[in-house]
Amino acid sequence: MYSEKVMDHFQNPRNVGEIENPSGVGTVGNAKCGDIMRIYFDIDENQVIRDVKFKTFGCGAAVATSSMATELVKGKTIYEALQVTNKAVMEALDGLPPVKVHCSLLAEEAIHAALWDYCEKQGITIEGLEKPKSDISEEEEEEDY
């Protein structure tokens, strides 16, 4: 059901772990599927993401999107990181099955949550960054007949 890229990132997830005293940390979940994702940023004085780690309690897609999303934002500025959408993550993973699209939203939202936390700590705002939801499950709809 998953692409090779997904399986690769699932089996060998990049950036697993925690960062002590992170510049920003964000935790989001999906009450519906019960999954939880936490992303830690170490951001330098130039607003570049020097390091990023994640912990995920979730399905294969959740693990793989965490891994890919962290790869995509690593070394980027916080403004660039904001552009990393769930679509970009899915594309980088060669796609996800329809029921798993929400898992990639979890990754996008976790990045935003960590950025928000960073901004709050720094007392800055980034244009276009809204206060992230801690539960993304409301956004979804199920196919209905």
């Binding site: 089996q11 309690f57 294969g60 959740a62 693990v63």
Partner: peptide
């Protein structure tokens, strides 16, 4: 506790 079923199943499958 602390882990999610699908991940476990995929790793078992592997």
């Amino acid at each position: 506790q602390f882990i999610e079923g699908e991940s476990l199943l995929i790793m078992l499958d592997m």
